[in-house]
């Protein structure tokens, strides 16, 4: 039987992989997989945070605009009744919206540990009288993500200008 040198060479080359080679390959592959997986998870977390922050910012601005409306409508009531010399705290959660999505004043008091705005946010405002014709407005919208608590602050000063 005559075997050509080419065929003989090929037969000799057909070896399996050694354990070490397989181990190295599997290690590199698993590191790459783990890297991709963890960066994807990070990216999802970041994106989720950005989304929550956008919504929280909108809620804070919504309250600021509504409060400004209240102040424009009736400064005396706003200043004397709703703001206090040492600050009055209000919790603007789902309960302050009526069926037309219009807002109304809640009774005084903070939210405590309740995240009652759309099931995940906590929106509080502190109204403090400052000078004779200014009200300091400190809004904060908080939300929980796992063990972390994030917050969007919004501070402004309303003044009587008329």
């Amino acid at each position: 039987m005559k075997i050509s040198s080419r065929l003989r060479a090929r037969l000799h080359l057909q070896k399996g992989l050694s354990l070490l080679e397989v181990l190295a390959f599997v290690t590199i592959l698993s590191i790459v997989f783990l890297g991709i997986a963890s960066s994807t998870i990070q990216s999802i977390k970041r994106t989720k945070f950005t989304e929550q922050k956008l919504i929280a910012t909108r809620y804070a601005e919504e309250l600021e605009e509504w409060l400004r409306g209240q102040k424009e409508e009736d400064w005396t009531t706003f200043y004397a009744t709703h703001a206090g010399s040492s600050g009055k705290t209000y919790c603007f959660d789902d309960a302050i919206y009526d069926e037309n999505n219009d807002m109304s004043w809640p009774s005084e008091g903070d939210c405590g540990s309740l995240y009652g705005l759309r099931g995940q946010f906590k929106r509080e405002v502190v109204l403090t009288q400052s000078l004779s014709s200014q009200v300091q407005v400190v809004i904060s919208v908080d939300w929980k993500d796992g063990a972390n608590i994030f917050s969007v602050p919004l501070n402004t000063l309303f003044a009587k200008w008329e």
Binding site: T40, E51, I55
Partner: peptide, 20 residues
């Protein structure tokens, strides 16, 4: 599993884009 994560990431980004 990897594709699920990848598409979840794409969906989350799309949602933020639309919201923004």
């Amino acid at each position: 599993a990897m594709f699920t994560m990848y598409f979840a990431s794409l969906r989350a980004q799309k949602k933020v884009f639309v919201l923004r």
